[in-house]
């Protein structure tokens, strides 16, 4: 996989390894995308999902498989993944825009309503986004989850935002 050379997955690699929700499912509403393709010993996501939509089983080096029909896109798994490799996308947000939610362990946190620079898996800014939600619940254990609205055609690419600078 190119991951070991370039340091990031492509959407094609995710689709080919059967890890991308189907078009039908994406059109129905928010759904998790688990960008974790290597057999490493790890299973907190499986336990985090109340709907039993994430399956790892035994041994714990199995890669997580999402049952897209059981996933409701609640996003509880995002902050639980130690690898920060889970995202939720929602194609149904509005006519032109969709939502992407991602873990963001950087300070300062973006402010709801502000405009941010959205980056792809390579860290390149590909569009601007509007911050819709910033969740930082105690159960997230200091892994805030940020949701931004972006153009629908960028939903498969955007996986974060440019870090904000501290104002001194």
């Amino acid at each position: 996989m190119a991951l070991r050379k370039t340091g990031y997955l492509t959407k094609e690699e995710l689709i080919n390894s059967n890890r991308y929700p189907s078009k039908e499912r994406l059109n129905k509403g928010p759904v998790a995308i688990i960008e974790c393709t290597e057999e490493i010993p790890c299973n907190p996501c499986e336990v985090a999902c109340k709907f039993k939509a994430i399956k790892i089983g035994k041994p714990i080096t199995n890669t997580p498989i999402l049952d897209e029909n059981l996933c409701i896109g609640c996003g509880l798994c995002i902050a639980k993944c130690p690898g920060l490799a889970i995202f939720v996308i929602d194609k149904t947000y509005s006519n032109k825009e969709g939502l992407v939610s991602f873990p963001h362990e950087y300070l300062p946190l973006p402010i709801t309503g502000s405009t941010v620079e959205a980056v792809n898996r390579e860290g390149i800014v590909i569009c601007s986004g509007k911050v819709v939600k910033v969740l930082n619940k105690k159960s997230f254990d200091r892994t805030p989850v940020v949701t931004i609205a972006i153009p629908k055609d960028k939903l498969n690419e955007v996986r974060g935002i440019k870090r904000l600078k501290n104002k001194h």
Partner: peptide
């Protein structure tokens, strides 16, 4: 080495933060 040594999820985190990797 010609390939990245550590876990893919670790490298993906710093790649989307814009850090280049020179293998």
């Amino acid at each position: 080495a010609p390939q990245i040594g550590g876990y893919g999820v670790h490298v993906a985190k710093i790649r989307r933060a814009g850090v280049p990797i020179y293998t």
